[in-house]
Amino acid sequence: METAATGLTFRDATHADVDVLVALIESAYRGDSSRAGWTTEADILEGRRIDPEGVLEVVRSPGSRLLTVERDGTVVACCQLEHRGENAYFGMFAVSPALQGDGLGKVVIAEAERTARETWGAKEMHMTVISVRNDLIAWYERRGYRRTGRMTPFPYGDERFGIPQRADLRFELLVKEIG
Score class of each variant (00 low, 15 high):
Ala122Asn: 02
Phe171Glu: 00
Glu172Gln: 08
Ala28Pro: 02
Leu136His: 14
Ala116Asp: 00
Val75Pro: 03
Gly37Gln: 01
Leu66Met: 10
Asp19Ala: 12
Val132Tyr: 04
Ile163Trp: 04
Glu111Cys: 06
Ala42Asp: 15
Lys106Ser: 11
Glu111Asp: 12
Leu174Thr: 01
Leu99Arg: 12
Glu57Tyr: 03
Leu81Asn: 02
Asp158Tyr: 10
Asp19Gln: 05
Trp139Pro: 00
Arg60Ala: 14
Phe90Lys: 01
Gly157Gln: 12
Glu177Gln: 14
Arg30Met: 12
Gly73Tyr: 09
His126Ser: 01
Leu8Ile: 05
Val132Leu: 13
Glu46Trp: 10
Gln165Lys: 15
Ala28Glu: 06
Glu82Ile: 07
Glu82Leu: 12
Arg49Lys: 15
Pro62Gln: 11
Arg166Ala: 05
Gly54Phe: 00
Val20Asp: 13
Gln100Phe: 09
Glu141Cys: 09
Ala94Ile: 04
Arg71His: 12
Ala98Phe: 06
Arg170Trp: 04
Asp32His: 06
Glu111Ile: 10
Ile44Gly: 11
Arg150Ser: 10
Arg30Pro: 02
Thr152Pro: 04
Glu111Thr: 15
Arg170Lys: 11
Val108Glu: 01
Gly31Cys: 15
Glu141Gly: 00
Arg35Asn: 10
Arg49Ser: 12
Asp51Met: 02
Val18Ile: 12
Val20Ile: 11
Phe10Trp: 07
Gly7Gln: 08
Phe154Tyr: 15
Ser96Asp: 13
Gly37Tyr: 06
Met127Pro: 04
Val76Ala: 00
Met125Asp: 09
Asp158Gly: 06
Asn87Pro: 04
Arg160Cys: 05
Asp135Trp: 11
Ser96Gln: 11
Phe171Leu: 07
Val132Ile: 15
Gly103Tyr: 13
Met127Lys: 07
Arg49Trp: 08
Ile178Gln: 03
Ile50Cys: 09
Gly47Ile: 13
